[in-house]
Simulated scan of single mutants.
Amino acid sequence: MTAVKFDNVTLAIAGRNILSGVSLAIEAQEFVGLLGPNGAGKTTLLRAIMGLVPAASGRISVFGDAAARGNPAIGYMPQLRGNTDALRLNGRDFVASVVNGHRLGLPILSRAARADVERVLDLVEAQDLAKRPLLEMSGGERQRLLLAQALIGSPRLLLLDEPLISLDPKRQRAVVALVKRVQSALAIPVVFSSHELNPLLGTLDKVMYLGNGHAAIGSVSEVVTGPVLSRLYGAPITVVCLGGKIFVLSGEYEVEGDAHRHEHDHAAV
C-alpha cells in the first residue's frame, strides 16, 4: 500500500512557493532518505505530510486519506533542540511526557500506556537510559529517546527531521543503524531527512532530493547524478564516487559537507 502520495502538490509559506507541482509516492516498508540544500523545503515537506502545512494546490494523502493534523498513523522525530525543563527529566519520564501529546507536565499513565513506554524503550535499546537525567546524556543517547517518543502509539509511518545534526560520524552511523533495525522490526516506511547522503548509503531503498522548488525520487543511482542534481540546485553539479562514498560538488565546493558543517556550527551556538 502507498504510504504517502503527493499529486501535483505546491507548498507555499508566506506567499512564497517552497515546492511547486511535486508528484511522488512512498510505498509501504520503504526507507527513504530526504536530502537537499538549506532552504530546499525538507522540513516543510515533512510538516505537510503531518497536515501542518496545507497544500496550496494538489493533494497529499497518507495511507489513502487526506493529510491531516494529529494523524496517529505518523510518528515524528523533531530536530534535537535544547530544552531546560526536559533536561531535568530522566529517560523514562521524557518518553512518557508525550503519551498524551507534547504538553507541559507529566501525564498520569494507564497500565497500557506504561507498557507502551517500556515497549519503545526496549525497541530503541534505551532501558539503560530510563533512570538517567537527560542532562547527563550525549547527543546520541538523547536521539534514541526522541526516537522512542516518535514510536509511542505504534505509528505506521516514521518521519525523522535531521537526526544526524551535531553528531560525530560514529554516532551518526549508530543512529542510522538503530533506525534501520526499528524499521525492519516494525515493517513500516521511514522518511529520514539529512544534509548528507553518505551516512545513509547501504540503508536506503530510495532517495528523495529537493531543490529549486522541485523534487526527484528514485534509487541513489537514478537521482544522485550530475544532470538531476544540476537541475535541482540550479547550478552545474558533479557527482564523484570515491572509496564507497559519494561527493556532490559545485566546482571545488562540496555542497553537502559544507551544508552539514554550517548546520552543526549553528546548532552548537
Rank of each mutant, 00 (worst) to 15 (best):
T2H: 11
K5G: 03
I13F: 11
A14Y: 03
Q29R: 15
G33K: 07
L34R: 10
A40I: 06
G41D: 07
M50E: 15
M50I: 08
L52N: 08
P54I: 00
P54M: 00
S57W: 06
S57I: 08
S61A: 12
F63C: 09
D65G: 07
A68S: 04
N71R: 15
N71E: 07
G75I: 10
Y76N: 00
Y76I: 01
L80F: 05
L80C: 02
L87F: 14
L89C: 00
N90W: 02
G91I: 00
V95G: 03
N100V: 03
R103Q: 06
G105R: 10
G105I: 02
L106N: 04
L109R: 07
S110D: 08
R111I: 08
A112I: 04
A113F: 12
A113T: 03
A113W: 11
L129Q: 05
L129W: 10
A130Y: 03
R132E: 02
E136T: 12
M137R: 03
R144H: 12
L146G: 01
L151G: 10
G153K: 11
G153A: 07
S154A: 14
L157K: 11
D168M: 05
P169Y: 08
Q172M: 11
V175F: 06
K180H: 09
A187R: 15
I188M: 14
P189E: 09
V190D: 06
S193V: 07
S194G: 07
V207A: 11
M208V: 00
I217Q: 09
G218F: 04
E222I: 06
V228Q: 09
L229K: 00
R231G: 01
A235T: 11
C241F: 07
L242T: 14
G243Q: 12
Y253H: 12
D258P: 02
A259H: 15
H260F: 15
D265W: 14
A267W: 15
